[in-house]
Design a protein around this nucleic acid. Sequence first.
DNA 1: TTGTGAAATGACAACGTTGTCATTTCGTTA
DNA 2: TAACGAAATGACAACGTTGTCATTTCACAA
Lengths: 336, 336
Amino acid sequence: MATMDKKNVSMNDVAVAAGVSLKTVSRVINEPDSVRESTRDRVHAAMEALGFRANFAARSLKLGRYGCIGVVMFHLSGGAVDMIDGIADAAEERGFALTMIKKRAGEKMTLAEAARRMSQLPVDGMIFNLRQMVDDFETFEAPKDLKTVIITPMEHPTCSTVSDDQEGGARMACEYFLDHGHKNVYFVSGKKESLSSQCRMKGWRAALETRGIEPPAPLQGDWNADSGYAAGLVLADKPDCTAVLAANDCMANGVMMALRDKGLSVPDDVSVIGFDDELYKTIPNSILTSVKFRHRELGVRALNEVVAGLEAPSSRSRTLVSGVLVERSSVKDLRA
Amino acid sequence: MATMDKKNVSMNDVAVAAGVSLKTVSRVINEPDSVRESTRDRVHAAMEALGFRANFAARSLKLGRYGCIGVVMFHLSGGAVDMIDGIADAAEERGFALTMIKKRAGEKMTLAEAARRMSQLPVDGMIFNLRQMVDDFETFEAPKDLKTVIITPMEHPTCSTVSDDQEGGARMACEYFLDHGHKNVYFVSGKKESLSSQCRMKGWRAALETRGIEPPAPLQGDWNADSGYAAGLVLADKPDCTAVLAANDCMANGVMMALRDKGLSVPDDVSVIGFDDELYKTIPNSILTSVKFRHRELGVRALNEVVAGLEAPSSRSRTLVSGVLVERSSVKDLRA
DNA sequence: TTGTGAAATGACAACGTTGTCATTTCGTTA
DNA sequence: TAACGAAATGACAACGTTGTCATTTCACAA
């Protein structure tokens, strides 16, 4: 009860209090079955009385590992929450904690810089969450003793990567339009520098070209509803526009509002698909069909990849987590 | 260039390579000015050639501190991103990294349990992000050598706490209604177990009672737009309802849509205020006035509080970060 | 009782740093 | 040139664990 105020209680202190050797205390912690029950109880009692807590530094020093995975957030946005959630849950399940650093606003952090900083911290491996291009992407080489996984849609020459299949998701949405009898699909992009936006655009373009359709000029947005609205006003005047793919749900909503304000109906006049499936949170009875990525799963995969590669840091793999089309009623079937 | 593949390069290896003593290498790292330039260069060259990286465990063991702050996420939701962002930036600014663990879905984690787990990890202090009530809140005592800050609207008997001033924010919104000539304010709550929702409701109630107004029965929502819509349908039928405070923007939007569907106009017939100021992202030309909390600032304050208390873990303080009313046009002035 | 092998425990070194204190080297002045 | 104080460097212990290997204790059979 009245725990002593001694600065740090070491295993040695516990050993003395329990009348056993240092090593026996160590055993009680790491291989309890190898010590007699009566002894074990005595040690536990001593630990309790003294308020003993194992010293992380000493343990790690001896063991040569930390039980921590480093996470570098180059970018911390809304969708990142679910991903962190997946990383954290998977980490815990496998007995790891997370050590996190973040690129600061305005700072220009390269992969090399991130690796340098991480390798000063208690980590056995690391995950880079990279949503924008970075200068040294191609040339970067991870520390040979630190398994490194990059979350990014781009392929990396030496590191393992994990990504949503954004391109595939966009292709899926496009084909959904085409399979419903639409002859063309317009595209509203997100911010130019965003890799997600670039990949979604790439998938859209590829899907159209595969069917021999010339993609119309994409409309530039910035992820927010207002930019979608602006795009929608433009699209409302195009007679051949029956299908719009917006790079996220907020812009899709903007497009829909603009169409409505122009006297057009979704889906009767124009069909719309978005990304991320989050509109239902904000719009009651939302009808928007949307491509949803499994960010949580993405995080889980990334962490598992790191842990799997702990023994062979130079191994390399590429994981794509597919998206899902959440169907509602914003796409009209023109085949009737 | 051709870095050796020796498992771990220690300061001793560097010392041998540079022809100096171990301690000199240590000095080059920690107090470069105390070593002659020529020697320093030689050591640096050796470090480079061997690919030396300081061992975190050994350093921490000797120093008795880690340079890491633990973060326990009892709850990881959308608003948490900005908070983490603030924590991470402030941490970096002060030379700390973050070690993070998370309550797993379904798991019932107490403060004591969180503290126990954290104290096995490399941390000098910790932050608990607590958005729901927890069993041992009142009885919990933080480890005496680990400064602990809890992010929660509740006051804690022994730990420092940091919180948005949710109650004050709700009061502010209510008074804004009343100051604009409204005689009463209806309230749509979030999920029952959410402390945020509880505090916002408390502030709403207090503001009305202060002015001698009997608060009407609050409507129960669940944060999502659909529940707001349901509440809106009910409110549309109440002739005395001129003002609605919804516990977040999504529900506020639901309320507005329901009112519109019932033929009522916002703000001409009914005025509405929400919380979090995020509707503009999803709704073009959004008119919703909203109470915005500075989550980033909250994170910064929490981290600073931990760092400030590192030397005196038992100190205790309470910080409230005020909200801001972002005015748009969803509130009608009835005083005319 | 004694002998035996297995189970339980202990002594000691080692992990890679930094602090303490002693020693060497240097530049300056007498 | 000698003497001196300051600057630079080094030897060694210590931080709190765990691994190795030796030793003691135990339960059981002879």
